[in-house]
Amino acid sequence: MFEVITLLTLTVIGYIFGSLNERRHFRSILEREETLRGVSTFTTRIPPQPYSGASHLATGNVVISIDYFKKISAGLRSLVGGRVNAYESLVERARREAVLRMKADAQRQGLDMIFNVKLETASITKGAKGQIGAVEVLAYGTGLSRTP
């Protein structure tokens, strides 16, 4: 019985703080996406021709942890199968955050276009039981300047 109560409490705490965190994070992502609108991203490899400006690598990364509710939710989901909604928003947040940081890095270097953007997602846990559950996203690309 004690186990179930602990489980329930953790899940409720996880849900409340987890969704608060998530909402706050999304709000901040949307805001910063607006302010960094000037920096454009492309996954194509061919740079504009002719070009005479600076070019340098821009990178951004973030590690985002799951919350307990998401963990339980995904655990249940693995019994019934199907779409793991709880993790979808998690990786979405991580990707957009990493891209934003890459854009910020480019802006710091005075660059406002990023070409050949690559995204790498890595799970920090590797599914081990009782381990830290988190996802890392690394975004990088070649920063160029619109105004040479």
């Binding site: 019985m1 186990e3 339980i72 249940l76 693995s78 019994l79 039981k129």
Partner: peptide
Amino acid sequence: LISGFSETRVAENLFSL
């Protein structure tokens, strides 16, 4: 069988009861 498929310890805890 069920808790073997599940990745978390959650299922085990629930079902052991």
